[in-house]
Write a protein that binds this DNA or RNA. Sequence first.
DNA 1: CAGGATCTACTTG
DNA 2: CAAGTAGATCCTG
Length: 178
Amino acid sequence: MKLPQNNSALEVPTEAGTFLAVYSRAGLCELRFPEKADSPPLADAATLLVSMEDWHAVTSKALRRLLAGCRPEIFPPMDLSAGSDFQKKVWAAMREIPFGETVSYQELATRIGNPQACRAVGGACGANPIPVLIPCHRVLAANRGLGGFSGGLDWKKRLLALEGSWTPKLQAAIETTV
DNA sequence: CAGGATCTACTTG
DNA sequence: CAAGTAGATCCTG
């Protein structure tokens, strides 16, 4: 994935660790989990836009709210221009998933008008640059339970639990999978 | 062209 | 039933 030149990165300290948020001119374009934040940001920290600090305030608030188990009131503008058309469709559809609800990969595929692209949808989820805010964790496998997660399955589990989407069925699925 | 964060149908104990 | 296997299907690099 290639990031546009003039990007900047800011930190989001939370109780669950420090996330890293990367902004372009158009909005939030990437969010990294704490574990992966040690690697140097691909961003050019020199370019700081005025509006970015406002965006970041919103991002931080939204993220912390989610991690506290509440539905965020507002989201920052997101720049998804780095993705392909297909990915943008998928991500857009993901944002439509209400807080506390889950969908299957296939359901998501159906929503973007391509019921048979479930597998490809999985790929797009993995390519999601803004996890949590774009709720890739609300996407589960149809029968088998969870599916995967780029940030680590424990994160997916934790996020689902926060939103109250944790079912005994999933619990069982995990123990079986492991 | 190979591979993936899938799904379904089918085949065995 | 449960568990395992094979094919189908679609986007990416």
